[in-house]
Amino acid sequence: MSELLQFLFSGITVGAVYALVALGFTIIYNASDVVNFAQGEFVMLGGMITWFAHAQGLPLPLAALIAIAATAALGVAMNKLMIEPARGAPVVSLIIITIGASIFIQGAAQLVFDKQIHSFPAFSGDDPIRIGGATILPQSLWVIGGALVVFLALWLFFTRTLLGRAVLATSNNRLAAQLVGINTNFVMTLSFALSAAIGALAGVLATPITLTAYSVGIGFALKGFAGAMLGGMGNPKGALVGGFLIGLFEAMTAGYLSSQYKDAAAFIVILAVLFFMPQGLFGRKSTDRV
């Protein structure tokens, strides 16, 4: 029983990271219909920049803030320099553009920083907390709390603020949103900044547990995407639940089946979801427009 609880804890912890990545995917997908394969690089940059700034002697909170701000700026630059000029390009091109961005950012990160594995101290110490025979790290609580707070903040933003509703309107119908006076370009910029900042936050929160290196991004991107798709593409609630579920599947696979194949869990889930319910858990049924 304590074994199951332990796997549950580790599953929820990684699941929270995937949920954050999935939320980032969702925001950009809603605003622009682009699946951003560079989403994982935001997580990597969040961790790497924080480590770097902290190693230069800055206090950890300030380092984290710099990392999140810098990554958000990069997200805005990505939108302006890559996504906007490529508007209307076929899906294959968009996939290659965002994968190209991901490769470029990785290349730049290994030049600017290095190729080593890094970490920084956990926020509230490393003493594990005992619950019912299993243990959980205080940092895990930070990660899980972070995912829930971000989700709640997003929910409030999208349902309670004018700007948030403008984003939703843009994702529903870009032209119609423009016609009622919404600055859709600003909405796009905002979405990329928000998405990058959330990714970076995930990196900041998770790095004391998962460690970071220039190459960790693609794994996060794929798992996060799996989560977003499981929940139903474009649905924030789905992204949150999907991310946690992928984390749990992974932890259970590692615990009970084979730790070598834990990464397979996410993809088997993805394939199963695509076969049996392509719209995901919370997604809308889509129809083809001819």
């Binding site: 890559m82 490529a86 290659i96 994968i99 190209g100 961005a101 490769i103 470029f104 990785q106 290349g107």
Partner: peptide, 18 residues
């Protein structure tokens, strides 16, 4: 610089020479 250049080539060609 190999990885950076590869990424950059992918980006530039896809954006400007669709």
């Amino acid at each position: 610089y190999e990885q950076m250049v590869l990424g950059l080539v992918m980006l530039l060609v896809m954006i400007f020479l669709r």
